[in-house]
């Protein structure tokens, strides 16, 4: 009886040990997720800062052109790309 009980305990222990995932296969940990999230947020902030800097630069450039170079060509803010357009046809 004791032998059977011992065997059952051993089987249970082996099952628990056998079900453990191999090292490195358990997926990212919560800490790793948090770090990744922070990196993404940092990138988003950088893109927004760059966009704002670009808008500011364009505005300042256009102001400068209008003030000091009458009739000079100003630039427009870039818009969402949608493919191109070929030259028009007169008919």
């Amino acid at each position: 009886m004791i032998r059977i009980a011992t065997l059952l305990v051993i089987v249970a222990c082996l099952t628990v040990i056998g079900c453990q995932p191999p090292e490195g296969m358990a997926g990212p940990t919560k800490e790793e997720f948090d770090a990744l999230k922070m990196q993404v947020e940092e990138l988003q902030t950088n893109v927004a800062d760059m966009q704002a800097a670009m808008d500011s630069f364009i505005e300042q450039y256009n102001m400068h052109i209008e003030k000091h170079h009458k009739g000079g060509a100003t630039v427009t803010k870039p818009t969402t790309p949608s493919g191109g357009v070929k030259p028009p046809t007169q008919k």
């Binding site: 427009t76 790309p81 191109g84 357009v85 070929k86 046809t89």
Partner: peptide, 14 residues
């Protein structure tokens, strides 16, 4: 998107 002002364009020109 390709013009500074709103422009009417033929579909074959895109």
């Amino acid at each position: 998107a390709n013009f500074a002002q709103l422009t009417i364009v033929s579909p074959g020109d895109h």
